[in-house]
């Protein structure tokens, strides 16, 4: 069989395009791998030079070589959990209102507005938190206005647009046939939403929540401005959420400028980066598993109850 010149040209073109696509796909993976290797290289000495028991210590005081990550972990945890507890219910309810109850003109007005909120620079929100929220929180009885709660409020506000917008998209994608089917049986509008629409949109909602959490956990600037940045472990007695904390991200940002490259402190900061990376990675893979594999299992479990 002989191949014509035109055919050869076509094959070459195909090969080049395929190669380009392959390269783009591979490069994304490569870049992630390189980032992780870089993090490991810079951060690994921390886990070698500083004993694990010390890393799990309760005091973060680099000047005295005390590298206890616990206060930072707890700081991040408090702020993130607080933000999620506030933002997820609020975001889901708003999305349900927009997607299922609001008249068209309201939806068309509110949806773009909410999406604009996502574009506000975090430093601006930090200002807002500092000037407006902090005094409010202090008036609520906290000893200072710069607390984990203040940070959680700001972060909740930052993740709301993501959660609302993606959840609303997910609700919109639920075919009207499902709603009709439920209404035609004699379900109320609320029963239709709760038992049919929300479960049908579940994977989209999970993604919305995860992206919201991702935004909250990785945020640095705004949090640094409003949480007080004291690396202490808040105690139950004085109100867990109403004391200053310092998050992992804020620690890295605040201290990176003043450490000597290659010092123990330096590598510990990268170590914190590794921990952050692992946490987000864990959240993402959990979400993926929940979204893809969960469907049949969850339905079955519900059915057996």
């Amino acid at each position: 069989m002989t191949t014509s010149k035109a055919e050869n040209g076509r094959n070459l073109k195909e090969a080049i395009i395929e190669g380009l696509i392959w390269f783009s796909g591979i490069s994304a993976i490569l870049i992630i791998a390189l980032i992780f290797i870089f993090l490991l290289k810079e951060g690994a000495p921390a886990f070698v030079n500083v004993p694990i028991s010390s890393l799990l210590g309760r005091r973060w005081y680099p000047i005295e070589d005390l590298f206890g990550l616990l206060p930072l972990l707890i700081g991040s945890l408090l702020v993130t959990v607080g933000a999620v507890v506030i933002a997820v219910p609020l975001g889901l309810i708003t999305a349900v209102y927009l997607g299922e109850f609001a008249p068209t003109w309201q939806r068309e007005l509110l949806k773009p507005l909410i999406e604009v909120l996502a574009g506000i620079p975090s430093i601006v929100l930090g200002f807002l938190g500092w000037v407006v929220l902090a005094p409010l929180v202090q008036n609520m009885g906290a000893s200072t206005g710069l607390t984990a709660f203040t940070g959680a409020l700001i972060l909740a506000y930052m993740s709301l647009p993501t959660i609302i917008s993606i959840t609303e998209d997910a609700l919109y994608a639920v075919p009207n046939e499902y709603r009709d089917g439920a209404l035609a049986i004699g379900a109320t509008q609320w029963q239709t939403i709760w038992r049919v629409v929300l479960p049908a949109a579940r994977s989209g909602i999970v993604i919305a929540v995860m992206l919201g959490i991702g935004r909250a956990i990785g945020e640095t600037m705004a949090v640094m401005m409003v949480t007080g940045n004291a690396a202490n472990i808040p105690s139950w007695r004085t109100g867990l959420f109403f004391q200053p904390v310092r998050t992992m991200t804020a620690t890295i940002a605040a201290e990176m400028g003043e450490v000597a490259q290659g010092s123990v402190h330096y590598s510990v900061l990268f170590g914190i980066g590794i921990v952050l990376f692992l946490i987000t990675f864990a959240i993402n893979s959990l979400a993926t598993r929940f979204v893809s594999g969960g469907d049949g299992r969850a339905t079955r479990r519900r059915a057996q109850l």
Binding site: Y178, G181, T188
Partner: peptide, 25 residues
């Protein structure tokens, strides 16, 4: 009650589809 042009079972188990009505009512 009503049955529609395109079959529209809910994206749930067969059991849950049939149980939907008795449950909401």
């Amino acid at each position: 009650g009503m049955v529609f042009q395109r079959p529209n079972p809910f994206p749930q188990s067969i059991y849950n589809n049939v149980a939907f009505g008795p449950r909401v009512l």
